[in-house]
Simulated scan of single mutants.
Amino acid sequence: MKQTRERRTYDQQCGLAYALDVVGERWTLLIVRELLLRQRRYGELLEALPGIGTNLLADRLGFLIDAGLVRSLDPDRRTSGYELTELGQRLREPILSLARFGLSYSAHRPAPAGGVTRPSWAVLAVEAMIDEVPADVPDETYEFDVDGELFHVAVVGGSVSVVPTAAVDPALRVSTDSTTFFALGLGRLDPLEAVVSQAVRVVGPAAAVPRCLRLINLTGRLTGALPAPR
């Protein structure tokens, strides 16, 4: 895959400018977002990025490969899978930091008309929502099902990890649709309202619910006692 046009550069001796020379063009970080979760085939990337266009996607992937951030699983076939290199994986923390900023920035702004959501985006969103493990949260696991996208959050020894698989014997199982999930994450829906209306369904002990909410920083919107989950 070859570059189709000359790349612009800021020509500044600055770490931020160097980074933006590589990932500052439109769609580039969203491609990286998709690959942070798992390997993706070309068609999967095209579907996950509505509006990008196949030629532009090919161009962006080619540049990321040349830059050493992405590798093709089969360089002879454009439709093969893609994954991040070790260098590309180092973009996880910057992307999570940008996602935290975006969640905060957009919390009190109207949702864009016709805004698209994808269940897979919930995985990185939850990772971005977690700042640290509250002192009263014990070692336990919470499983999320967002429109069939299964992942879990595991607290072990004061550390937390977000894993894109189903959990084994979680303390809570939480299921919802992607629209409701992002409404919660963006502060546009109260968690209590979501549970009472069954837009969010929770299975597990009631005591674990507020712990889960505190962990993913939704406690500030918890305005009353939650009903016992089913």
Rank of each mutant, 00 (worst) to 15 (best):
V160G: 02
R78K: 07
A111S: 04
G185I: 15
R188D: 09
P94F: 10
P134Q: 08
V162N: 11
P191Q: 06
L49D: 07
A166F: 00
E25W: 03
C212V: 13
R90G: 09
L16V: 12
D59T: 00
V32F: 01
W27K: 00
T176W: 05
G224I: 08
P164L: 05
E149P: 03
V70C: 04
L61P: 00
A208R: 13
R90W: 07
L20V: 09
M1W: 10
T223I: 14
P191F: 08
E127W: 02
S197V: 01
V162W: 03
A154D: 15
G114K: 08
I52D: 06
L61N: 05
A128N: 02
G68E: 08
P112N: 01
C212I: 08
V23S: 09
L16T: 13
V155S: 04
R230L: 10
S161A: 15
L35W: 02
R221N: 09
T85P: 07
S120F: 05
A199W: 05
E83Q: 13
F101C: 12
V168T: 10
M129T: 00
V123H: 13
A166H: 09
H152G: 03
I65E: 12
A128E: 06
T141E: 02
S159A: 13
L103F: 13
S80G: 13
S106P: 00
L61A: 01
S161V: 14
L84W: 11
V137A: 05
T85F: 07
S106T: 12
D147F: 00
P134H: 06
R100G: 10
R201N: 12
E149R: 07
V70D: 04
E34A: 13
D190Q: 12
R188K: 15
G114E: 06
P50D: 01
R100D: 09
T223W: 13
R38P: 00
V163S: 00
L150D: 06
S159G: 09
D66P: 01
A167S: 11
V209R: 02
E93W: 06
Q12D: 01
E34L: 03
V133T: 12
A167K: 04
D147P: 02
R71F: 02
L103Q: 14
D21F: 01
E127H: 01
L189K: 11
G220Q: 03
I31K: 03
P229R: 05
V163M: 05
A194F: 04
V196P: 00
V156N: 04
R211K: 15
R78M: 15
R188E: 10
P75L: 03
G43T: 09
V196K: 08
D131S: 12
P119H: 09
P134T: 10
A67K: 13
L124S: 11
G114A: 01
V162Y: 07
I216T: 12
L186V: 00
E83T: 13
F63M: 09
D139K: 03
L29N: 04
Y18H: 14
D177P: 05
R109H: 13
V70Y: 10
L35V: 07
F151D: 07
Y18R: 14
L64H: 02
A228Q: 12
T223C: 05
A128S: 05
